[in-house]
Design a protein around this nucleic acid. Structure first.
Length: 257
DNA sequence: ATGGCTCTCGCGGAGAGA
């Protein structure tokens, strides 16, 4: 089974690009973030024609998450309890293989001085509470976390320490999530490789190798033990057939189930 | 030092993203 996470930066603008990727990689389950559309605007038929069904938690203009699958999925959660005012950023479903799958679009925070920054930390505290309250042996938490875990996950290395995305306060929140028993599947397979999942559109950042690794698939040990491959699909950060890419690459793992 | 892209809304330019 192949499961993936991808911040598409606007699903309507990315529709043909996403279809291109689905055909090429044939994932079984995909967590999507930054749909930037409402539930009623979700192009279900478009995905049905590609063999996928979707569970959607949308919002006008901003945020929005969904789960695509070419198998069976049963919705178990929409929205992070207590954080409705920060937008549609979480959706969960029971998928095939007895796995509970959650995808999140964590708040950005903007700057250390902006009110969104303490809001980001508070959102993470709620995510930890929510995650700890649920019990499931085989679960996956994936998405755009908007936090750089370690110096090797940013092109700026130690020089970025203390900046937004790279603060101790943010890293402590991300670590607290992992401490509930989740493994960062990419980092487990590649302990010292520098690979990024996001590059700024501006200034040729992609070609300058100026990126961040902020998109993760985290999994409980019973799932992590089944992983055969982990791929940050940087080819799909490039134009495909003249279509514009998201500023995030898809990330996927293959499981032996 | 800054932000040169790209998205949305909506039809001009602004806000957000990371």
């Amino acid at each position: 089974m192949r499961i993936a996470t991808w911040n598409v930066n606007g699903l309507r603008a990315r529709l043909d690009f996403v279809a291109h990727w689905l055909k090429a990689r044939q994932p079984n389950v995909v967590g999507l973030q930054e749909l930037k559309l409402q539930d009623a605007e979700f192009p279900h038929e478009f995905f049905n024609d590609l063999g996928y069904t979707a569970l959607v938690h949308g919002q006008k203009s901003w945020n929005g998450v969904a789960i695509l699958t070419n198998g069976h999925a049963e919705l178990t959660q929409t929205g992070l309890p207590g954080q409705d005012e920060r937008g549609s950023r979480l959706i969960s479903a029971d998928i095939e293989g007895g796995i509970n799958f959650t995808t999140v679009y964590c708040p950005n925070g903007k700057t250390l001085e902006h009110a969104d920054y303490p809001g980001k930390l508070d959102w993470y505290d709620s995510l930890l509470d929510h995650w700890q309250a649920a019990e499931h042996d085989a679960r996956v938490l994936c998405g755009d976390f908007n936090i750089v875990p370690e110096a090797q996950d940013t092109w700026r290395g130690d020089a970025a320490l203390g900046d937004i995305f790279h603060t101790d306060a943010e890293r402590q929140r991300l670590q607290a999530i992992k401490n509930t028993g989740l493994v960062d599947l990419f980092r487990e397979k590649y302990p010292s490789e520098q690979q990024f999942s996001w590059w700024d559109y501006r200034g040729g950042a992609f070609h300058r190798k100026q990126g961040l690794r902020i998109d993760f698939l985290l999994a409980a040990p019973s799932v992590a033990n089944q992983v055969s491959d982990v791929v940050i699909d940087r080819d799909y950060r490039k134009k495909q057939d003249g279509l514009t890419a998201s500023d995030h690459a898809p990330v996927f793992v293959d499981l032996a189930v």
